[in-house]
Amino acid sequence: MLQISHLSKLFHPGSVDEKIALVNVNLQLKPGDFVTVIGSNGAGKSTLMNMISGTLRPDSGTIHIGGNEITNLSEHRRSRWIGRVFQDPMAGTAPHMTIEENLAMAYSRGKSRGLSIGINARRRELFQEQLGKLGIGLEERLRAKVGTLSGGERQALSLLMATFTKPQILLLDEHTAALDPARAELVTQLTQRIVSELKLTTLMVTHNMEQAIRLGNRLIMMDGGRIILDIREQDKQHLSIAGLLGEFEQISGHKLSDDRVVLGT
C-alpha cells in the first residue's frame, strides 16, 4: 500500500547547520497495517510524515501509494489518498467555519471543487450519523463554529474528517499528545475503532510507549534518521516498555532521549 524506498533528506545542506533528517529509509506497509512509530527527538519521525504528506520533498528516494508514485506530487494533489491528523488540535480544522462546513470540505477530498452547494439535506444526515458515532454529542451542534469546541472534541472531529473518505493512508502525528490523559484516551479509542472498522493503513507517531505497544500490528523505532527496529505481529504482542527501552539502547548505543516521552498511563 505504502512503499518508501531509499528516502533521504538533509536540512540546510552544505552549511554549518547541516542536519541529517533521514538516511536511506525503506519502509513498506501492507494494506491494513497499523504501524506505530517511536524514537528520540530529531529521529526523523516528523520528517518522514511530512515527506509522505508532501509538506517536504525528499533529496533522493521514492514514495509510492498503491502503485502511484507520489514523490514529487504537490501536497494538494496527493491528499486524495492521504488523511492526516496533526498534533495541534487547531491545525486540522477551520475554526471560523461550522462543524458541518468542515465536514463538507473533508467530504470533497479528492474531488474537484465546483459550484455545487456544499451542504444539502442528504449530506447533513450523513454528517449527523457519522458524528453520532463519535459519541461526544457533536451531532447536536452541526452549526457551531469549530473554534468553540474543546481540544479533545476538535481532535475527534479532525480524526473523523481525516478518515471520512476512507483514505489509502492515514497519518497520525502525535495526535493525542496535546490532550489531557482522559481526552487522549478517548481519542485513542476512537482511533482504534475507526482504523479497524475501515481497515485503514495507518502510520502513527507517538511519544507514549504504552500506546505504541498496545496499538497496531507493527512497531518501528527511529534514531538518527534511520529505522533501527521493526517489530511485527507476534513479536509485538510480547513487548514490554522495559524490553523496548533496553533494545533501543542496545542498538543505538544511547538512551532514548526524549523530553516528552511517556512510559505509560
Binding site: H76, S79, A91, G92, R109, R113, I117
Partner: peptide, 29 residues
C-alpha cells in the same frame, strides 16, 4: 453569499481560516 456556500467558496473561506488544513483535503490554495 451563495458562492461562499459552494464547495469552491468554502475552500476559499478555509484558505483564509486554515491553509494547511484545506490543503490536506486537496484544495489548491
Amino acid at each position: 453569499d451563495l458562492f461562499f456556500r459552494t464547495e469552491l467558496g468554502m475552500a476559499l473561506r478555509a484558505t483564509g481560516d486554515n491553509q494547511r488544513m484545506i490543503r490536506s483535503f486537496g484544495a489548491n490554495t
